[in-house]
Nucleic acid binder design. Structure first.
Ligand SMILES: [Mn+2]
Ligand SMILES: [Mn+2]
Ligand SMILES: [Mn+2]
Ligand SMILES: [Mn+2]
Lengths: 221, 221
DNA sequence: GCTTGCTTTTTGACTATTCAAAATAGAGTA
DNA sequence: TACTCTATTTTGAATAGTCAAAAAGCAAGC
């Protein structure tokens, strides 16, 4: 059985892989796990011995198929637990990440299956992050469009928030841009670096381009 | 923060204390935790240093008020989680113990409060074991009566199963003696060592005295 | 009092994970 | 080419928890 430390390392590598391309530098793991560099070197060697990752000296790591499958399982648990905490237990979407960070290591596959069924097999978590299915398949999010680059004057739906720091989530909540919200981008002013948009009931809102780039939108269903 | 190992040791000591009187012998912890005796001696010293138990050399341990409070918190998590798994996620009552054994260390107080509220602040878990409240108060079960010693020819309700081995739980389930079931003890034959009783819809059932002693009954509400 | 048998403790060793601090490799720069 | 800066690795040490096996304590019986 993989320890929770092992699971955290693999999940961190997976998330980095999904965001960037190719190899995961040691520094990315240092950052994600909050440990000193020497610790990562040590752990990475151990994980490589176990066949979960490949370690290119002075370069970084790459997940093996076994390691990736394990990481996808942990990510699935994390996101289903988050969804459960928000939908069923009515917790605030900004506080569920830390809870899921611990529960993802304690929820068994049996319990997870129950949760998945109970929730009706959701495709995304409260932040709009896609949930891998039981076989480890996960929706491709490479071509998602954000408020920074979407069509103008068209009603769209917020589907995902890329920046999940508490501050940004609080801002998103308070300004009504949570996943599910319907919005319309009115215009983009590149010179001043702002995006002007309309949210439900005609209210208008102005946000900076970097913030707009963190809000993924899609067609209204 | 107490590690899950520490929590398991304290909970084991608490459960033993509740069943028997006074001091908890080292062997009881060896048995409950599934480790070798030397390990218990080592851990017990560490727990004593942390002020969670008192260690009487060659005798055993006793929980300190701090240790007992911690243990009651873990027991509360365990039993609320079991209840949640059965009532909300529809898991079988015979399989939830092991799941709760892991989840009790990962569920935060915040999540626990949500679960407690969601379930309507239950007083007992699926096995009928009392759930400590948030302040650590737990119902006194010292004078509970079992089918071995209860009144005869009176309709009673099963409230608790004391033997929670999978085999016994399966027997209880299949013979309709789960907590909540209404039963009537018809007569006790001390010579042959059996108890004859009637369960719902007039079916009769015979069980041995040791088995009867594991089924707690109370007045019908 | 001496021997038996069971419980508990001691000792020595091992794994997993971590940090601090020093050493080193590379990449880019002057 | 030599220097500088940063990322990574090495080394040495610590903590938590565990086991195996030997030693010690103690109660009971002879
Ligand atoms: Mn985690
Ligand atoms: Mn999420
Ligand atoms: Mn446990
Ligand atoms: Mn129980």
């Amino acid at each position: 059985m993989a320890t929770s430390t092992v699971e955290n390392y693999l999940k961190a590598a997976l998330l980095y892989e999904q965001e960037k391309y190719g190899i995961v530098p040691m520094g990315a793991l240092v950052e994600a796990l909050g440990v000193v560099p020497g610790t990562v070197t040590t752990m990475v060697k151990a994980l490589a011995t176990q066949g979960l990752i490949e370690h290119e000296a002075r370069q970084g790591v790459r997940l093996t198929p076994v390691g990736r499958a394990l990481a996808l399982g942990v990510l699935r648990k994390h996101r289903l637990v988050e969804t459960f905490l928000v939908q069923t237990l009515k917790m605030d979407w900004s506080e569920v990440h830390d809870e899921a960070e611990a529960l993802e290591h304690a929820v068994s596959d049996r319990v997870l299956e129950r949760i998945d069924e109970f929730l009706g097999r959701p495709a995304a978590d409260p932040h709009g992050d896609p949930i891998p299915d039981a076989e480890g398949r996960i929706a491709d999010t490479a071509r998602q469009v954000t408020m920074e680059g979407c069509a103008v004057n068209k009603i769209l739906r917020v589907t995902r928030i890329l920046d999940q720091t508490p501050d940004f989530l609080a801002y998103v909540q308070q300004s009504g841009l949570k996943p599910g919200a319907r919005i319309k981008v009115l215009r983009r002013e590149v010179a001043s670096g702002v995006v002007r948009c309309e949210i439900k009931s005609g209210q208008e809102l102005t946000l900076g381009l970097p913030a707009a780039a963190k809000i993924v939108v899609g067609a209204v269903v």
